[in-house]
């Protein structure tokens, strides 16, 4: 199945900020956040976009 323009994952260090549909990954630190985001980016062929310092989304374009 080909997905176009969809949020594949949400990665954050702040539990208060997110909820809802896409898979959410909570991380302890900024370093872990970067590590998880780069892994998911590579695995899903998506792009990691930063919405703020502690909130990343992986988007399939």
């Amino acid at each position: 199945m080909m997905l176009e323009k969809s949020i594949l994952a949400v990665i954050t260090t702040d539990r208060q900020k997110v909820s809802g549909g896409a898979p959410i990954f909570f991380c302890e630190s900024k370093k872990e956040l970067e590590y998880v985001a780069s892994n998911i980016e590579a695995i899903t062929d998506g792009i990691a976009h930063a919405l703020s310092e502690d909130l990343f989304i992986i988007v399939k374009h």
Partner: peptide
């Protein structure tokens, strides 16, 4: 141009 999240990128 676009939004790039990861420092490495």
């Amino acid at each position: 141009i676009m939004n790039i999240g990861l420092e490495e990128r």
